[in-house]
Simulated assay, not measured.
Amino acid sequence: MNTVEVNTPGGRYPIHVAPGRLDRLGDSIPADATAIALITNPTVAAHYASRAIAALESTGKRVIRVELPDGEQYKDWQTLNLIFDALLQNRLDRKAVLVALGGGVIGDIVGFAAACYMRGVRFVQVPTTVLAQVDSSVGGKTAVNHPLGKNMIGAFYQPVAVEIDTDVLNTLPDREVSAGLAEVIKYGLIMDPAFFEWCEANADALRRRDPQAMAHAIVRSCELKAQVVSADERESGLRAILNFGHTFGHAIEAGLGYGQWLHGEAVGCGMIQAAELSARVLGLPADSVARVRSLVEAIGCPVAPPDLGTDRWIDLMQVDKKTEGGQLRFVLLPRIGEARSQAVPDADLRQVLAQAAQPATEQG
């Protein structure tokens, strides 16, 4: 088993990465827990809920099961209240522990519920997608979406543990694997050029879910994210680099409607746009932009952005957490392996957006 430690002011906790961790979930439940709520969705539950419940019941604690509808479009206030309804109806107290079994949507919404319920209860992340394992389950960002913007209502709230069972990736659709790999290559682009080169050399193995390649990608991604969030838990500086490609990506998701593109697909395409913007603003070499595009394509993500219309793109970006004082900020690359956040000239942004000419209906 590989263990990565995350140490933030909001909490210190381990990330365990190994096959079979689903059967050891009881190890991460605090001894003083009064009850456990396993929160998942029907898709994940069909494969893994029974094993997870058996592992949690081995602690001797009362376990309740809560199923939420599956999909990004349900990461909203109404679904959040379904969690609160279940917790209150079952009279869970503030020593209860929530367990998020699922992808990024489940992890984000359960984490936010944990932050809010009785002003804060403990929770464990059990991510079941590549994207959730390498990104959203680590670092304590929790949120729900608003019709006007993605992840606009949330809190920084750290789990007590992250349990990553690499075996669960075997039941993922290929499209979900590709979407998750976009977040993997992001880490190389923003802070580890050697890891980016490794991803280029191992793109086929990653898409095939080669166990050794996937394990290395997950562990290295978690190590890199842990470094960042341990230094900057609440995104006051360094952590902003983790948003590379996300300002474009969030606009794609909101503009097309949540769920049309997977989050990782939107981020992958957004990283290409961010690289193009980096070339204009910081002089990122053209061959580096081409490498970004080639690798995004190699992992199976879309490379052509939807044609939302330049003004619509900018409107969507204005409703984004990276906006400061009405000014858009982007994470840009002076070179592969280095990133920084800054405002950009409007003309350069519009030039990049003008290249998004392919109809949105052809992208999903």
Rank of each mutant, 00 (worst) to 15 (best):
L172C: 08
N145E: 03
N151C: 09
G180S: 08
E163Q: 15
I153C: 07
D174H: 14
A182M: 01
M152K: 08
H146D: 01
I164S: 03
A143S: 12
R175P: 12
N151L: 11
L172T: 05
V168F: 03
D174C: 03
M152D: 00
E176A: 15
L169K: 04
A179R: 06
V160C: 15
V168E: 04
N151D: 03
A161D: 15
T166A: 08
L172Q: 00
D165A: 09
L148N: 04
T166P: 05
V160W: 13
K150T: 12
V144Y: 09
Y157N: 08
N170P: 02
G180E: 08
K150G: 09
A161G: 12
I164D: 02
L181H: 08
G140A: 11
T166L: 07
F156V: 11
V144Q: 04
H146C: 01
P173V: 05
D165C: 09
E176F: 03
K141D: 09
Q158Y: 14
V177C: 04
I164Y: 10
V144R: 04
N145G: 05
G154W: 15
Q158N: 15
H146M: 03
I164F: 06
P173S: 00
A155C: 10
P159Q: 12
L148I: 11
L181R: 01
T166N: 05
L169C: 09
Q158W: 13
R175I: 13
G180H: 06
V144P: 04
G180M: 05
A161E: 12
G154A: 02
H146W: 12
V177W: 03
P173F: 09
N145S: 11
L181V: 08
P147D: 10
Q158G: 11
E163Y: 07
D167L: 05
V168H: 04
E163L: 10
K141A: 13
D167C: 01
V177I: 15
D165I: 12
V144T: 00
D165E: 11
N170C: 13
N170L: 14
N151R: 08
T166D: 02
L169R: 02
A143Y: 13
L148S: 10
S178P: 08
D174V: 14
N145R: 02
M152P: 09
V162Y: 10
L181N: 06
P173H: 07
P147L: 14
T171D: 10
G180R: 03
I164G: 06
G149N: 09
V168P: 02
I153A: 07
A182G: 15
I153T: 06
K141P: 02
R175F: 09
K141F: 12
E176G: 06
P147A: 14
V144A: 02
T171N: 07
T171I: 06
A155V: 09
A182W: 06
L169E: 11
S178K: 05
N151K: 09
N145I: 05
V162N: 10
N145H: 15
I153Y: 14
A143M: 13
S178W: 01
V177Y: 02
H146G: 01
A155Q: 12
L181F: 06
G149P: 01
D167K: 02
R175M: 10
R175S: 13
V168W: 01
Y157V: 12
V168C: 07
S178Y: 05
